[in-house]
Nucleic acid binder design. Structure first.
Lengths: 136, 136
DNA sequence: ACTTACATTATAATGATTCTAAAGTAGTGT
DNA sequence: ACACTACTTTAGAATCATTATAATGTAAGT
């Protein structure tokens, strides 16, 4: 739950101009109580409904990637033809419902500590992600 | 390390006709000491080198999907524009080298037991996969 | 206001994957 | 061996997500 001014500041502070389109997208992504999982297609549909003058698909792609690079969005590793993004950028894991293609957050505390006992010389661990596939 | 007859039997026993193309692909995939991680593109290149009369790309896709459905191949969850497959169909995890896009197996024993403390009513856990992203 | 670098846009291009429908082949029965 | 049928392969077209292009628009500093 944030307001327009907060978005404007955040964008400016990360070197992104607070354009009409970016603020519109911020509203959809971050004016929520829960975290939001989405594909570009889903985001695009929501934006179409919300406003009369729709935002170009290219801009949605650009913005989502800009937000991902600034760590305002996280991309989730799922093999699907589409990319999934998450407004929760903290270290956490996911359920993936194979029937509905829905993602559900697993808090860090929902998953026991994960010990990686193997090391690859000269490589650093960037992230450890658990994907729990479920279906009915 | 298996021979042609073994492949023929395995294919027949799962209702797949042992065609020239499928046997050729079996050789590339399973006549190895270590497990093999690949994309369709990589597999296609290897097959092109191996034999004069190349196998159609559509057949490679068909075969890989048929093998995946019969549980002779596993698809790995990575968000990439391409799909990755693994000849190791057992329950195990992966390192993904973000610099080289290379996959490395983590034996089940290389990762501590993963406890999923959250349950989703009416849903069964189909798999639990850990992806450890690394880079230099 | 003027300028400039950054953004948006419609459209085209790309690239992986899937579809199509025609030609080929394996396996069965004769 | 021969014929039949269902399954396979194939080249090429189609599809779909994503990225590139290049022209137009806009934010923000001077």
């Amino acid at each position: 739950m944030e307001n327009k001014e907060t978005f404007v500041k955040k964008l400016r502070s990360s070197g992104l101009r607070p354009t009409k389109q970016r603020l519109e997208i911020c509203k959809v992504l971050y004016e929520r109580d829960k975290t939001f999982h989405f594909t570009i297609e889903e985001l695009s549909k929501i934006l179409k409904k919300k406003s009369k003058k729709s935002i170009s698909l290219a801009t949605i792609y650009n913005t989502v990637h800009a937000f991902k690079n600034k760590n305002y969005l996280k991309e989730i590793s799922i093999n699907s033809n589409k990319s999934y993004f998450d407004t929760n950028v903290s270290n956490h894991h996911h359920f993936f419902n194979e029937s509905t293609h829905e993602l559900i957050d697993l808090k860090d505390t929902d998953v026991g500590v994960i010990k990686i006992k193997k090391k690859i010389p000269g490589k650093k661990i960037k992230s450890v992600e658990v994907l729990v596939k479920i279906s009915s």
